[in-house]
Simulated assay, not measured.
Amino acid sequence: MLQLQTIHHIAIICSDYHRSKRFYTEVLGFSVIAEHYRAARDSWKLDLALNGIYTIELFSFPEPPQRVSSPEARGLRHLAFSVQDIDAAVKSLAAQGVACEPVRIDEFTGKKFTFFTDPDGLPLELYAS
């Protein structure tokens, strides 16, 4: 059997590199590990960490096609982040102009959660730890 250890990173392609870089660093609080412009591809690659752990590769490409982002569409449903205080996290996002869905309770765990989107409509979730 394959012996996976952890998830190494999540790759996200954005439509507006500078807008998404600001969102992931200034709104969500990721730190920049490395940033590279690849002239041959007219593409940026931004390596981001969450609490010191390499987590997201943010890419830009000229004219990337749109992807269906409905949570019930085939493929990646959403990316979830754990937080200690959902209500404080929702207020922090609102202060940055990011709207969240109403907070709900997970019927199986009893934990609070909510959804919001990144600048390209990628569904993101906050889940109480």
Rank of each mutant, 00 (worst) to 15 (best):
I53P: 03
L46N: 02
P71A: 02
P64Q: 10
K45N: 10
R41T: 05
L76A: 13
E35H: 05
Q66G: 12
S60T: 02
H36D: 04
L76Y: 00
S31D: 03
Y24T: 04
I33P: 00
F81Q: 06
F81M: 15
L58P: 10
L50C: 15
K45E: 05
E35D: 03
F61A: 06
L79F: 15
P65Y: 08
E26G: 00
H36K: 12
L46K: 04
R74P: 08
A49V: 09
S69Q: 09
Y24K: 02
E26K: 09
V27C: 12
L79C: 08
L79V: 15
Q66N: 02
G29W: 14
A34Q: 15
S70Y: 08
A39S: 12
L46Y: 02
A73W: 05
G75D: 04
Y37K: 09
R67Q: 13
L50G: 08
S70D: 13
P65T: 04
E63V: 08
R77T: 10
H36F: 01
E57R: 11
A34F: 08
F23M: 07
A80E: 07
A80I: 07
L50V: 07
T55R: 11
K21I: 01
Y54D: 12
L76K: 01
Y37T: 05
P64S: 11
G29R: 14
Y24P: 01
P71D: 01
D42W: 04
I56M: 10
H36V: 08
Y24F: 08
E63R: 15
S82A: 14
L48Q: 03
S31R: 10
S82E: 14
S69T: 14
F59I: 11
I56H: 11
G75K: 10
I33C: 01
A40I: 12
P64C: 11
A73S: 15
F81E: 06
L50I: 07
S70G: 12
W44P: 01
S69E: 03
W44R: 06
L28M: 13
A39P: 14
D47E: 07
A39N: 13
G75A: 10
S43W: 07
R74L: 15
I53L: 08
H78M: 09
N51G: 09
R38H: 13
L28W: 05
L79Q: 00
